[in-house]
Nucleic acid binder design. Structure first.
Lengths: 344, 344
DNA sequence: CTTGGTGTTGTTACCGCTAACATAGCGCGG
DNA sequence: CCGCGCTATGTTAGCGGTAACAACACCAAG
């Protein structure tokens, strides 16, 4: 039993191990592995061979500390469970792909306290940029964002004052537009169905915009219904039944998201309600799932993927404008009338 | 031009800044901020006050390097877009919550190459544990996993040889069980609908188990149909139409996931096909969405949340068994017959 | 034979924090 | 009033890399 030439195989390897195995200095190994600086082909080969043979994995913690550079981009979002943020994430990932930057996600569950702690945790890793959903933050969180010294992009919403840059849509306007379209189609007894989430500011703004849109035409909401938790599709179904039982003369239902809207649509179809003749329906988000439904629910695309792409571009410094920061990029969702609003 | 007493205010703060502001050594500040070691209450107050006033955020990069401890757990999964992995993630997050550990997610898109590079990237941050979906990895990835020197938990699947620990279900058995239930209910002309994903090994194993289950009863698949990309609900609808047109005498359709199954169900209901009398249907996963459908699709719960919980427990060293590693934990999905399989 | 470029490799000094040990101050029994 | 055993705080030496610069070999031109 000869002792193998390698030192304790359980110890994790360092540059020194590779350096000794290949007979050059640690610095040269470092250069080879990062493709930086001039290294002769012969040396490069030797080093790469040794590194691969040992199974060396560089220690980015040490590298980041020494170089003061971290290839991480923090992404803070409220939730991962409703298909809207995963799509934003894909836009971000795809755009960051070829920049050497890597997204790291944190979830807040719509809780300002969690947002604060997730943000603190993220900043303690000194990411080179941060993407965060929403414009509303606790004072402490705002202070951290302001003094972080890195590019910040607040996404999804532009109805407010960003810390640095922002990419999103105006939810207030989106709500108002939907109201106008509904009124134009001749509906008058309008109900609203949404979530019980005081901290979902975007849903709130859509609701306010919607109500304002109605008010401008001298209309008001005829009834409202809210839910929290559970299967959104099922809740949409149940809430629709509830609200229609309570206020049978409603002629339109505006849902705060597509999932409950889809539930409502399925309920109406099963109950033989004439959609969109006797009752019109609309949701919000433009989720892919709607494509598979028996009838197409009216909705508004929230530009989720593009928001992700643009935000990542700002962080990566790829915006064509060449602006350094403080950019506010508004995207414009378009109304997709589908089959659940009467044609005028 | 006198040099200001404070150094560049844009520079990010270090322990030294807090130490100077509070008049104690860096070490003491460090102790206060980590709640470690004895510090007098007076000093603690002073330090916390100064840290808060300055808005100091510790640098975990430096901390991790010095202490050789990283509170990160890598989680590598194929996708975030189909509701199964988000639910696993929640189990992981909830369990890690009170351990000081933090999950960091990487997505592979079912690509072995991406898996390899995501894994390399993750290991270079020296996480204290790793959770990775599946038992099949490239040779290079396997080598990295083996020599990482940290607890590894492979999740979702247990049909194979884990590197270290594993938590999951037997997809082969799940497929077989479904076949047996279908046969017991009297169906004989059975079709399969799935994804074109050579690297989705779990779907493949379910399919193989299903085919074996049929074979044991002397049956074989009467037809098959595959898809890739797009809205799964819509694809399920379209594939169902296609396969039924091509092979009209099918009396059962087994879908490789609930989403296309739901699409198929909606198609059948809209076409007036007698379900489950003339045609039976079943999916896989037990997604919440099914609760909202007009009829309940037969499915098998994949134990997604519990898989996340158990995997996180192993990483956090919270398993009751007290086992160090190499644990294989099998979970047992139960068949939910719903309304789309004939009662025997 | 020098000089000076050019291309390659090595040396030194940190990066910001923490483990481990050293030290200072204090109360107290002998 | 010495020395012991506390507790509270400070000092030193890295963690594993990289930036910046130094050093070296080699060769062409002067």
């Amino acid at each position: 039993m000869t002792k193998p030439p390698l030192p304790d195989p359980r110890r994790t390897l360092t540059l020194r191990d590779v350096s000794e195995a290949s007979g050059v200095s640690e610095m040269t190994v470092s250069r080879v592995l990062r493709n930086r600086g001039d290294v002769s082909d012969a040396t490069r080969e030797k080093v790469l061979l040794a590194a691969r043979a040992l199974g060396y994995v560089p220690n980015k913690i040490a590298g980041a500390l020494a170089s003061q550079r971290v290839n991480l981009v923090g992404v803070i979002i409220p939730s991962m469970s409703n298909m809207v943020f995963p799509e934003v994430m894909m836009g971000i990932s795809d755009t960051l792909e070829d920049t050497g930057l890597q997204p790291v996600v944190g979830i807040t569950n719509y809780s300002p306290e969690r947002e604060e702690s997730v943000l603190y945790e993220m900043l303690s890793w000194r990411p080179s940029g941060l993407i965060i959903a929403g414009l509303e933050h606790s004072p402490a969180a705002s202070a951290m964002l302001e003094s972080a010294g890195i590019p910040i992009v607040e996404i999804m919403d532009i109805d407010g004052e960003p810390v640095d840059s922002a990419v999103g849509i105006s939810h207030r306007r989106a709500g108002r537009q939907m109201a106008e379209a509904i009124i134009a189609a001749g509906y008058r007894r309008i109900g609203f169905l949404g979530t019980k989430m005081p901290d979902d500011h975007r849903a709130r703004k859509r609701f306010e915009g919607f109500r304002d849109g109605l008010a401008r035409a001298g209309l008001y909401l005829a009834d409202e219904e809210y839910y929290a938790g559970g299967s959104a599709l099922l809740k949409g179904r149940e809430m629709t039944e509830t609200i229609l039982k309570r206020t049978p003369d409603l002629d339109f239902l505006y849902y705060s998201n597509d999932m409950i809207g889809a539930g409502g649509l399925l309920y109406c179809l099963a109950s033989g309600i004439d959609v969109p003749g006797r009752l019109g329906l609309a949701g919000f988000n433009g989720v892919e799932l709607l494509d598979g439904l028996p009838r197409k629910l009216a909705t508004m695309d929230a530009c989720r993927r593009e928001i992700g792409i643009r935000a990542a571009e700002i962080i990566a410094g790829k915006r064509p404008s060449g602006v350094i920061g403080g950019e506010v990029l508004e995207l414009f969702p378009k109304l997709q009338p589908g089959d659940t609003i009467r044609k005028v």
